[in-house]
Design a protein around this nucleic acid. Sequence first.
DNA 1: GTACAAATTTAGGTATTCCTAACTTAATAA
DNA 2: TTATTAAGTTAGGAATACCTAAATTTGTAC
Lengths: 225, 225
Amino acid sequence: MPTVSKEDYIKAIYNTKNSGNGTATTSGIAEKLDVSKAATSEMVQKLSDLGLVDYEKYKGMSLTSEGERVALQILRRHRIWEMFLIEVLGLSWSEVHDEAERLEHSTSDFLIDKIEEFLGFPKFDPHGSPIPNKNFELPDAPLIYSLNEVSIGFSYKISRVLDKSNELMKYFTKIGVALHKEVFVKEILSFDGSVVIQIDGNEITISQKTAGYIFVCMPEGGAIG
Amino acid sequence: MPTVSKEDYIKAIYNTKNSGNGTATTSGIAEKLDVSKAATSEMVQKLSDLGLVDYEKYKGMSLTSEGERVALQILRRHRIWEMFLIEVLGLSWSEVHDEAERLEHSTSDFLIDKIEEFLGFPKFDPHGSPIPNKNFELPDAPLIYSLNEVSIGFSYKISRVLDKSNELMKYFTKIGVALHKEVFVKEILSFDGSVVIQIDGNEITISQKTAGYIFVCMPEGGAIG
DNA sequence: GTACAAATTTAGGTATTCCTAACTTAATAA
DNA sequence: TTATTAAGTTAGGAATACCTAAATTTGTAC
Ligand SMILES: [Mn+2]
Ligand SMILES: [Mn+2]
Ligand SMILES: [Mn+2]
Ligand SMILES: [Mn+2]
């Protein structure tokens, strides 16, 4: 029902809440969507009038349950498209996000259901992100940890990466970061938080910021001790 | 480059020129796109300023060669999507057009090329319409005739239908009209131009208007005598 | 050739979504 | 607490794509 713009705002609010910072701020959403704070402030008030966002002036914003439903619907479309583009058409990790960013607004639920069926009802997308089901419910996800909060001297399995940008995805591909691969954490540099890992036999140093975009679990799926 | 609206206007002008009436009029485009004549008049002037349409006030409109290039690009996207939706996802003839009508504006040429490759570079879409290639050139098409201009007492092969609406497609499916099927033309009623055909062993009467949306060629591809 | 009707364009407005600049509120630091 | 700055909002305006109602142009019928 919402327009392309509204859908992108709602998704941005959802993603902010459910990853990292926690609170969605006017400035944060404006930056994420590359629009002015003024435009964001106006739009948030419109979304509030529509009952999709809880909002009090100067106090911050959060999705209503209806807004969250819409967010999950869009995430479902986005992630199913990314899955399709990679699994069926063979696009690369760095090519899918921008396509999905547009397709997510032009696809009926009917069509998304068909694609999901064609793909065999996957629970996670090619970045390891959970795909909401037909009823917009998220699958149970195993406990995962970012590479920043992990114990030194152990091996882990990469279970999710955040597709923040094409460039990041290209970088991941280049250094060998891919889903289900094993990484050994050698060291975390005390002075800047960089994480030194071993992957495919190569030793690689990843900045703290980028390490925060890589999530891992225990190789056998057990809890991290 | 053009917006969704502009793309749909350009496509409407192209389709009017290349099927039936010939000349694109303000009223005709307005009706086809379900907008006011005023909106159409304004938009045509804008498209003229953009160099996509040749236009002189009160005199009518036609696409420039650049406009035609854009039209073929959009037709290419539309038809490849329809092919994909039917061949790969198994949607029905009546379900694909509306989806393609939206997807055609949200798909990069890069992605369309990938889908085309996945489909094996088809030359015609599921309605028998030609698919422009990567360079926006139409394939050579065999001579075809509408069911209105065909000789009585002969058999033909259905080689193209115009997907004017979902309802028309459902009707075609219901009465057995499908690509590559054989029809025997029994009679054309003198008083209203209805065409009486035999298809799948059933005798069916089709109105003159609807017959104009069905195109056939000789069963072996020869010329119609 | 005029008068009328149909087709088309223009005038004046609305709704979206965005902008910059100005203003207001909240947070912080001395 | 108070000054300063950061964050957020409002004011005023632009671009797009529509609309209805009022011209205007064109073509046709007498
Ligand atoms: Mn993505
Ligand atoms: Mn998007
Ligand atoms: Mn179609
Ligand atoms: Mn369209």
